[in-house]
Simulated scan of single mutants.
Amino acid sequence: MPAADAAGWPGSCARPDRPAPKTPPPHHRAPDSHAATRPDLALRDFKPDPTAADTRWCGDITYIATEEGRLCLATVIGIASRRVVGWVAADDLRTELVADALRAACRTPARPVR
Rank of each mutant, 00 (worst) to 15 (best):
residue 2 P to Q: 12
residue 2 P to I: 04
residue 2 P to N: 03
residue 3 A to S: 11
residue 3 A to N: 01
residue 6 A to K: 11
residue 9 W to I: 11
residue 15 R to I: 09
residue 15 R to T: 08
residue 18 R to A: 15
residue 19 P to D: 15
residue 20 A to P: 02
residue 22 K to M: 14
residue 26 P to Y: 03
residue 28 H to K: 13
residue 32 D to F: 05
residue 33 S to H: 07
residue 34 H to N: 10
residue 34 H to V: 00
residue 34 H to I: 00
residue 34 H to S: 10
residue 37 T to S: 10
residue 41 L to G: 09
residue 43 L to W: 06
residue 45 D to F: 01
residue 46 F to H: 10
residue 47 K to R: 15
residue 48 P to Q: 11
residue 53 A to M: 13
residue 53 A to F: 02
residue 54 D to K: 08
residue 56 R to S: 01
residue 57 W to Q: 08
residue 59 G to Y: 05
residue 60 D to E: 07
residue 62 T to I: 09
residue 62 T to C: 12
residue 66 T to C: 04
residue 66 T to V: 05
residue 68 E to N: 02
residue 70 R to T: 14
residue 72 C to G: 03
residue 78 G to C: 13
residue 82 R to T: 04
residue 83 R to Y: 01
residue 83 R to A: 14
residue 84 V to I: 14
residue 84 V to T: 07
residue 86 G to V: 04
residue 88 V to F: 00
residue 88 V to Q: 15
residue 89 A to Q: 14
residue 90 A to C: 03
residue 96 E to N: 08
residue 98 V to D: 01
residue 99 A to G: 00
residue 101 A to P: 00
residue 102 L to I: 15
residue 104 A to S: 07
residue 105 A to L: 06
residue 105 A to I: 02
residue 106 C to Y: 00
residue 106 C to D: 12
residue 110 A to C: 03
residue 112 P to G: 02
residue 113 V to P: 04
residue 114 R to D: 13
